[in-house]
Design a protein around this nucleic acid. Structure first.
Length: 843
RNA sequence: GGGCGCGUAGCUCAGUUGGUUAGAGCGCCUGCUUCACACGCAGGAGGUCACAGGUUCGAGUCCUGUCGCGCCCACCA
C-alpha cells in the first residue's frame, strides 16, 4: 500500500468533503415510528461568513451526529440558514451607502431584490464553508427561513395565535432604534454602563415659594413632562398634593401627584414624569391618567411640541436645555452619574423609548407549559445549571413585540380594510374583506421579528403545518446544541412554539456550549482584530486538527481558549497517525493466510495483541460514554492517548519484533472507526486505503464495549513489561549510559520467555535466563543507588501514611470495604517494591 | 438590585456522585539523525489545588465567610 510521506490534509480533505455531499452519504429517508436521532442546525445568519464560534458548534454537532450514525440509529442532521432581518438589512444598508444610496430611495421591492442577491452570495458562501468543513448534514433537506414552506409555517402560526387571542396590536412604549428605524424587542437592546450626569432642576410650585427639585439623566425630556411625583410618605406630601408645578421653559402647569415611584431619600425626592419617553413614566402616566406629549420623534429629533427646541437632535437639545435652565437659575446642581444605557444590539445606536402601535404576543400563557416541560425533565439542559437561567427568564417573561419596521422578513399577514376599517388576518392573501366584502385592502407593512420564524425551525423545516412523514419521523428532535447567548432569543421560544403548535417539546436535550476565545481568553471580535478565520486556519492546519483542538478543550459549558499552538499540537497528532499508518502499511497484511481470504479476522496472536485489544475495548467504553454525556474533551483525550501512547509508543514498537501483523490491521481499522467522529477526514482517507467492503467509514459500526475483549491478564502482564522497560531506560538515562550498548539488569522477577523478549528488545538489556530457576531470572546491572534510595524514602512515607489510616478504627468502621481493600493492595505493592529496592541496594 | 460561574504546574485547561502517590497539551531541562514520524524518540524538573474557618475516618471535590476576576438578567429619576 502506498502512502505519501508527509501528512498533508489539503490533499485529501476537499476530496472527501465533496464526495460526502455528492454521494448523498448522509441523506436519510423518513420512516415514521422507527427509532431515530435528529437535530436541526442552529441556522447561521446569511450576513457574512462563518466564524470560529460556528466552527466549534459544528464540530460538536458533527461529532455527536457521526457517533450516533455509527451506532446504527437512523440519524438526521438538517442544515439551513436564517434570513436574519435586522442584521442583513444593516449589511445591505451599508453596501448601499457606499453607492450613495438609501433603502428608502430604492423602494421596498427593489431593496428586497437587492437583499435576495446578497443572500444568494453570502448564504451560498456559508453553505460552501459548511460543506468544506465536512459536516455530515442531510444536504437535500437544506432550508432557509424565508423559503416558501417556512413562510407558510409562519403564517399558520401567526393566524393560530391571533385566533387564540395571543397576538394583539397595542400602543405601548417601545425600544426604538433611530438608525434602523424600527422597534426592537427587549432582548435586542443591549445595556451598557456609561458615565453620565444627574441634573437637578428646580420646578417652581404654583401659588407657593417652594421649588421642587427633580433629578434627571435626560434633561431634554423635561419638555414632555406632564407631572411631577413625590412619595406619599414624603413630609411635603400633604402640602403639595393637588398643587401644580410650573414646567420651566415650556411654562406649562403640571400636576404634582403622589406615587411610590419616587423613592424616599433618592436625590431630591421628586421625580419628573414624561410618559412619552420613559417606560417607567409611561406606566405612571397610565396610573394617574396623564397626557402624553411626544417631544422626540423617530429620528431622535425634537418635535414641534418641544417649542423653541424643535428640530434639534436629542443630544444637541440636551445641551441647549441645560444651558437655558442654567441661564434662568433653575439648575440646582449637576452630579456625575453612572447609568446603563440601552443600545441597539445590531448597530449600537442609543435606543429611544417611544410610544408606538405595534404587534405583540402574550407570553405568560405560552411560558407556563414551557416551564413545566423543563421542570418535568421532558427537556434536559446540559450542563443542568442552565435550566436556572431559563427559569429565571421564563418566570419574569413579558409580552414580546413581534413587529418590525423592516422590509426583509415575513410580512405580517394582516390586512386593513378601507371599507369597514376592520382587519383581516389570513393564511392566504385575501381579495376582499371578510367582514364587508370591500376590495380596498391594504396589507400591514411591518414584518415579523426574525426570531418568530426561527422559533418554528424544528418543525417548519420538517414540513409543518402539513402532517408529513418527515415530521412524524423526526419530531421531536433529539438534541439542540447552541450557545448560552441565545437561550432566550431562540431556545425558549422554540420550546414555547413547539408545545403550542405541535403539542410536544421541540427537542429532548439542550447542550449549551461555551464561547471560543483567543489564547488570552479575550472574546474574539473583528474590532479587536483577534479573530481566527476558519477558512485560513483549516487550510493551514487541516480541518481535522482544528476540530480536534476545539473538542479536546470543550469541557461541557466552558469557554475555550484557542491558540495556534494548540491546533499545531493536534496536527502533530494527525501526523502521528499518518506515520503510524505508513509503518503499518509497509508490513504484510496477513502472512499466515493466502489468496482471497486475506482479510479473514484471526483475533489476537500475541501478548501485545491481546493487550492492545483489551486497551481498545476499554477506550471504546470510555468514548461511547463520553459522547453519550456530551463530554467531547474526554472522548478526544482518551483517543489521543490510546493512539499515541498505547498504539504508537508501545504496541507498534512491540510489533516490530513480531512477524504476524494480521491483528495489527484488524485493530488499526477499529481504532480508525473509534476516532472517526472527531477526525472525519484522515480516518476516511486511511480507511479507504484498507480497501474494505464498506462504502465509507462514516457508515461503519462504532466499536462498542465487548466483555469478551476484556483481558485483565494481558493488561497486568504487559504492565510489568512496561514498568521494567521504563525503569531500565531511566537507569540508562540517569547514568548517561550509551543507549546503543546493551546493559544488564539487577532485579529478580518472575517472567516468561515472551515477556523476556519484549523487555530485552525495548529496553536494550541482556536478561540472564536461568533454566534451573524455571521462570525466575536474575539480572545483574549497575544500580543507581541515589535513585533507589530516593524512591525507597518515598515508599516508606507512603506506607507509613497507609499504616496511620489502618490504625484508625473509625476509618476501618466507616470507610467502604472497596476502599479499604484497594488501600491494602496498595500497601502490599509498596512493601514488595521496597523489599526489591532494599535487596538491590544491599546486594 | 437579582442570578450564574471562575480562581489547580511558567501558560491554557481537565479532574462526573468526597477515597490511596492531583493529570494533559504547550513551554522548560537532559540525552538521542533507533531503518513510520525531529509534526519525532527516551528520560526529567515543576503544584501548601486563591485565602480563612467548618463538616467528615478522609476535602481540589461538600458548607460558611473573605479577597480577586468574568458573564447574564432588571422599567437603578
Amino acid at each position: 500500500m502506498q502512502i505519501d510521506k508527509v501528512y498533508e490534509p489539503q490533499r485529501f480533505e476537499p476530496h472527501w468533503a465533496d464526495w460526502w455531499v455528492d454521494e448523498r452519504l448522509f441523506h436519510v429517508e423518513a420512516a415514521p415510528g422507527k427509532p431515530y436521532f435528529s437535530l436541526v442546525i442552529p441556522p447561521p445568519n446569511v450576513t457574512g461568513s462563518l466564524h470560529m464560534g460556528h466552527m466549534f458548534e459544528h464540530a460538536i454537532i458533527d461529532a455527536q451526529i457521526r457517533w450516533r450514525r455509527m451506532t446504527g440509529i437512523r440519524t438526521l442532521w438538517l442544515p439551513g440558514t436564517d434570513h436574519a432581518g435586522i442584521a442583513t438589512e444593516l449589511m445591505v444598508d451599508r453596501q448601499l451607502a457606499k453607492e450613495g444610496l438609501t433603502k428608502r430611495e430604492l423602494g421596498r421591492e427593489k431593496f428586497i431584490e437587492r437583499v435576495w442577491k446578497w443572500k444568494e452570495e453570502f448564504g451560498g458562501r456559508i453553505v460552501e464553508q459548511m460543506k468544506r468543513a465536512g459536516l455530515s448534514c442531510d444536504w437535500p433537506r437544506q432550508r432557509f427561513t424565508l423559503d416558501a414552506g417556512l413562510s407558510r409555517a409562519v403564517r399558520e402560526a401567526f393566524v393560530r395565535l391571533y385566533d387564540k387571542g395571543l397576538i394583539y396590536r397595542a400602543n405601548y412604549i417601545v425600544n426604538w432604534c433611530p438608525r434602523c428605524q424600527t422597534v426592537l424587542s427587549d432582548l435586542e437592546v443591549q445595556h451598557e454602563e456609561m458615565q453620565g450626569h444627574l441634573w437637578h432642576i428646580r420646578y417652581p410650585v404654583e401659588g407657593s415659594d417652594v421649588k421642587l427639585v427633580v433629578a434627571t439623566t435626560r434633561p431634554e425630556t423635561m419638555l414632555g413632562d406632564t407631572a411631577v411625583a413625590i412619595n406619599p410618605r414624603d413630609p411635603r406630601a400633604a402640602e403639595l398634593e393637588g398643587k401644580f408645578a410650573r414646567l420651566p421653559l415650556m411654562e406649562r402647569a403640571i400636576p404634582i401627584v403622589l406615587d411610590e415611584m419616587a423613592e424616599l431619600g433618592f436625590g431630591s425626592g421628586a421625580v419628573k414624569i414624561t410618559p412619552a419617553h420613559d417606560p417607567n413614566d409611561f406606566e405612571a402616566g397610565r396610573r394617574h391618567n396623564l397626557p402624553s406629549i411626544q417631544v422626540i420623534d423617530q429620528h431622535a429629533k425634537m418635535t414641534a411640541e418641544a417649542g423653541e427646541f424643535a428640530g434639534l437632535d436629542r443630544f444637541e437639545a440636551r445641551k441647549q436645555v441645560v444651558k437655558e435652565l442654567e441661564k434662568r437659575g433653575l439648575l440646582e446642581k449637576v452630579e456625575p452619574y453612572a447609568l446603563s444605557a440601552g443600545i441597539c444590539h445590531r448597530c449600537k445606536t442609543l435606543v429611544e423609548p417611544l410610544v408606538s402601535k405595534q404587534w405583540w404576543m402574550s407570553m405568560k400563557p405560552l411560558a407556563a407549559p414551557a416551564i413545566k416541560a423543563v421542570e418535568e425533565g421532558r427537556i434536559q439542559f446540559v450542563p443542568a445549571n442552565w435550566a436556572k437561567t431559563y427559569y429565571e427568564w421564563m418566570y419574569n417573561i413579558r409580552d414580546w413585540c413581534i413587529s418590525r419596521q423592516l422590509w426583509w422578513g415575513h410580512r405580517i399577514p394582516v390586512w386593513y380594510c378601507g371599507g369597514c376599517g376592520k382587519i383581516v388576518v389570513a393564511r392566504e392573501d385575501p381579495d376582499r374583506c371578510t367582514h364587508c366584502g370591500s376590495a380596498e385592502l391594504r396589507q400591514e407593512s411591518d414584518v415579523l421579528d426574525t426570531w418568530f420564524s426561527s422559533g418554528l425551525w424544528p418543525f417548519s423545516t420538517l414540513g409543518w403545518p402539513d402532517d408529513t412523514p418527515d415530521l412524524r419521523s423526526f419530531y421531536p428532535t433529539s438534541l439542540l446544541v447552541t450557545g448560552f447567548d441565545i437561550i432566550f432569543f431562540w431556545c425558549a421560544r422554540m420550546i414555547m412554539f413547539g408545545i403550542e403548535m405541535m403539542g410536544d417539546v421541540p427537542f429532548r436535550q439542550v447542550h449549551i456550549h461555551g464561547l471560543v476565545r483567543d489564547a488570552e481568553r479575550q472574546k474574539m471580535s473583528k474590532t479587536k482584530g483577534n479573530t481566527i478565520d476558519p477558512l485560513v486556519i483549516n487550510d493551514k492546519f487541516g480541518t481535522d486538527a482544528v476540530r480536534f483542538a476545539l473538542l479536546v478543550s470543550a469541557a461541557p459549558g466552558n469557554d475555550i481558549a484557542l491558540s495556534e499552538d494548540r491546533i499545531d499540537a493536534e496536527r502533530a497528532f494527525a501526523n502521528k497517525i499518518w506515520n503510524a499508518s505508513r509503518l503499518l502499511f509497509g508490513k504484510p497484511r496477513n502472512p499466515a493466510l493466502t489468496g482471497g481470504a486475506e482479510d479473514a479476522p484471526r483475533g489476537p496472536q500475541s501478548l501485545a495483541d491481546r493487550w492492545i485489544g483489551s486497551r481498545l475495548n476499554a477506550c471504546a467504553e470510555t468514548a461511547n460514554k463520553a459522547f453519550e454525556q456530551h463530554r467531547y474533551h474526554e472522548a478526544a483525550e482518551t483517543l489521543y492517548h490510546f493512539w499515541w501512547g498505547d498504539f504508537c509508543d508501545w504496541y507498534l514498537e512491540f510489533k516490530k519484533f513480531e512477524a504476524d501483523w494480521s491483528y495489527a490491521y484488524e485493530l488499526y481499522e477499529k481504532a480508525l472507526r473509534l476516532l472517526h467522529p472527531l477526525m472525519p477526514f484522515i480516518t476516511e482517507e486511511l480507511w479507504h486505503r484498507l480497501d474494505l467492503p464498506g462504502k465509507s467509514i462514516a457508515l461503519a459500526e462504532y466499536p462498542r464495549f465487548d466483555p469478551s475483549e476484556e483481558d485483565h491478564g494481558a493488561e497486568e502482564r504487559m504492565q510489568l513489561v512496561q514498568e521494567l522497560v521504563t525503569e531500565a531506560r531511566a537507569i540508562r538515562a540517569d547514568n548517561k549510559m550509551d543507549p546503543r550498548r546493551k546493559m544488564d539488569a539487577a532485579y529478580s522477577l518472575e517472567i516468561d520467555e515472551e515477556r523476556r523478549g519484549m523487555i530485552e528488545r525495548l529496553a536494550n538489556v541482556a536478561l540472564i535466563f536461568d533454566p534451573q530457576l524455571k521462570q525466575r531470572i536474575w539480572l545483574d546491572i549497575p544500580v543507581d543507588r541515589g535513585r533507589l534510595e530516593r524512591e525507597s524514602d518515598q515508599l516508606e512515607k507512603q506506607i507509613a501514611a497507609l499504616e496511620r489510616q489502618f490504625g484508625n478504627p473509625e476509618f476501618l468502621n466507616k470507610a467502604p470495604e472497596k476502599v479499604i481493600a484497594a488501600m491494602r493492595a496498595k500497601r502490599a505493592e509498596y512493601e514488595k517494591k521496597l523489599a526489591e529496592n532494599r535487596a538491590a541496594l544491599g546486594g
